[in-house]
């Protein structure tokens, strides 16, 4: 029995989207509203995006913080590959409303559709909202504000009670050049996850094989 399959039926993939968005959003020093609008305009110009990441998970359930590595690739309009390479081997690919997932234990690829998998549906819905920078949708789910400091940092606080019960806040730090360099997910139950991005490539050539 694959418990993950069951669990996925009841879970949201919001965090993965947050991570992706963090990489998609270039920075701005303007006020929050102006910043968001500027981000939307700039995000429209992003056709492909890829990056490696290092994730550090520090939660009360783990005896020690756990570090994992991975990478993601995005291609407009609806293609996304998100995978972990160390210490686990698992991930998923989405092409529009359909895709497949795999894990290192079996190596088997399992197809899924957004319509039949709530997780995928949430991913696709959130993707569209964030990539197109649908301010109406974003502002319905989060309160977004710029944090003071030399670096460009956006803090997103969930508005929905059910999300608040899981995530306290998400803080994204942007590089002056554009894409995000750091994402901190502060969890409501204590601890959190920090993801550092590197080797980011914007609008690099993509042959699409990552999504097959």
């Amino acid at each position: 029995m694959k418990r993950a399959d069951v669990l996925r039926l009841f879970t949201a993939a919001l965090p993965s989207v947050v991570l992706l968005v963090a990489c998609l959003l270039p920075a701005s020093s303007a006020r929050t509203a102006d910043t968001l609008e500027a981000l939307r305009v700039k995000a429209e110009k992003v056709l492909t995006l890829s990056a490696d990441f290092v994730q550090e998970t520090s939660i009360p359930m783990f005896a020690q913080p756990v570090r994992s590595h991975g990478r993601f690739v995005f291609k407009r309009p609806h293609s996304l590959r998100w995978e972990y390479t160390d210490p686990v081997h698992e991930g998923f690919v989405l092409n529009g409303d359909a895709g497949f997932r795999w894990d290192g234990d079996s190596g088997a690829r399992k197809p899924f559709a957004a319509g039949s998998d709530p997780m995928a549906a949430v991913v696709v819905g959130q993707m569209i909202a964030w990539i197109s920078f649908d301010l109406e949708s974003i502002s319905r789910e989060y309160a977004v504000e710029s944090l003071p400091g030399r670096e460009i940092r956006l803090q997103m606080t969930p508005l929905r009670d059910d999300v608040k019960g899981v995530i306290k806040a998400v803080v994204i730090t942007f590089t002056p050049e554009g894409p995000a360099s750091l994402v901190e997910i502060k969890e409501a139950g204590g601890g959190g996850t920090v993801i550092r991005f590197g080797k980011t490539v914007v609008n690099g050539p993509r042959d699409g094989r990552e999504f097959e």
Binding site: R3, A4, L7, R8, T11, A12, A13, L14, P15, S16, L19, Q55, T57, I59, M61, F62, V66, S68, W82, Y84, V88, E90, M119, V166, I167, I185, E187, T193
Partner: peptide
């Protein structure tokens, strides 16, 4: 699962 994005929830 706890390391994966959905593990947060």
């Amino acid at each position: 699962l706890l390391l994966a994005p959905q593990g947060i929830a």
